[in-house]
Amino acid sequence: MEIVNTAFRLFAENGYDNVQMKDIAEACDISKSLLQHYFPKKIVLLSTMLNEIMLSVFVYSNEQLTALSAEQRTMIQMSFMLRTLDENPKMENFIKDIFENPELTTELVLVTLDWLESIGVKGETAVIRYAINFAVSGGMAVFFKRVLLKASVEVISENIAQAFYLLIGEQPQKIDQIYLSTAKYNTDRYYQQFISYLHEHATIDLSAEIKI
Rank of each mutant, 00 (worst) to 15 (best):
N88C: 08
L104I: 08
N5A: 05
G169K: 15
K174R: 11
I98D: 00
L180D: 09
F134A: 15
K184C: 10
L198H: 04
L55T: 11
L166N: 10
L104K: 03
P172I: 14
N186M: 09
K96C: 08
T66F: 15
E154K: 08
M21Y: 06
K211N: 12
E103I: 14
E200R: 11
F144N: 02
A151K: 08
L148A: 11
E87Y: 05
Q171A: 14
F194Q: 00
I128F: 06
E100K: 13
F143E: 03
E2G: 07
A163G: 13
F39L: 03
A161K: 01
I98H: 01
I76K: 00
L110R: 07
V136W: 01
D188C: 08
M21S: 07
I132N: 01
V111M: 10
S152D: 11
I175P: 01
Q192N: 13
I210C: 14
D23G: 07
T182C: 05
Q36V: 02
S181N: 04
T203G: 08
D176M: 09
I132Y: 00
M54K: 09
T112S: 15
Y179W: 07
R73M: 03
K90S: 12
D23H: 11
K184F: 06
A208V: 13
A131L: 04
V19P: 01
L50R: 01
N88W: 02
I53G: 04
L149H: 14
M81R: 15
I3S: 00
D188K: 13
K145M: 12
M49C: 14
K42C: 03
F99W: 12
A135E: 02
F134R: 09
N62D: 10
K174D: 10
E52V: 04
T112I: 11
L166Y: 04
E117F: 06
L206Q: 03
E26Q: 15
K32N: 09
I24Y: 00
Q171L: 10
T106S: 07
E63G: 09
I24T: 01
V142R: 13
L116N: 03
N133A: 03
